[in-house]
Amino acid sequence: MRRRAARRPRPWWGSGAARDLLLLPAQYDEDAEGDGCGSARAERRRGAAVRAGAAALRAGLLVTKCGLLRHRPAGGGAFWVDSQQKRYVPVKGDHVIGIVTAKAGDVFRLDVGGSEPASLSYLAFEGATKRNRPNVQVGDLIYGQFLVANKDMEPEMVCIDSSGKSSGMGIIGQDGFLFKVSLGLIRKLLAPKCEIIQELSQLYPFELVLGMNGRIWVKAKTVQQTLIIVNILEACEYMSAEQRKQALAKLSGNR
């Protein structure tokens, strides 16, 4: 056993727990295999793009996108590749913001930024019955969750969780503003204890909805305040932490 371990060459990046390894497409992710992480588990966690094209490769994973290899030891361990993209691909369980494009019989059609519109049943709202329909107009914003998101199939959304509660999902109010950022930035903003959000929340009170499809809805007290949040979040894509802090300090001074 010991000999077997000695024979295998150590990957050049080592096997520390915290590594941000840059992966390129078709690179053989040997380490993920070595840690005994099944392909299904490693596949697609939080925008993961480590796709197992690896059935053919006997074991191990083949990376199909370039990005940083990330690892989370907690919860059974997960590997994913953080990559930069703007086009959203629906994933089951993701919370997204959709725009209602049509009311077709008993389902709504929602634009979620994917290749296909998603469908949303009018019964998939909290407290909705055949009598009591939700008041949804074309052009409204809806925050929901993907129930079905398969390849080559129309994705299906719901605005309730498994116990029938809305838990924050549903129709988003008429005010506020919607804008789009890259998917990488959204993941960063949704990370627990995100510094950007914490710093922004000290400026003034505002409401914020982040969809995994890159859409952000913001509502502050005035138009000016909303615009400030929008511009800061858009600029965060290219700002370093120091630049952001300077910008925020300037704003809080001006206020």
Partner: peptide, 27 residues
């Protein structure tokens, strides 16, 4: 592929901002 539709809240916000003589990019 279809273009992303414009939501009602964007429309309302833009028109309100224009009334207040404000533009998205601060111009």
């Amino acid at each position: 592929m279809k273009a992303t539709p414009l939501s009602n809240c964007e429309r309302r916000f833009l028109l309100r901002a224009i009334q207040e003589k404000k533009r998205l990019d601060g111009r």
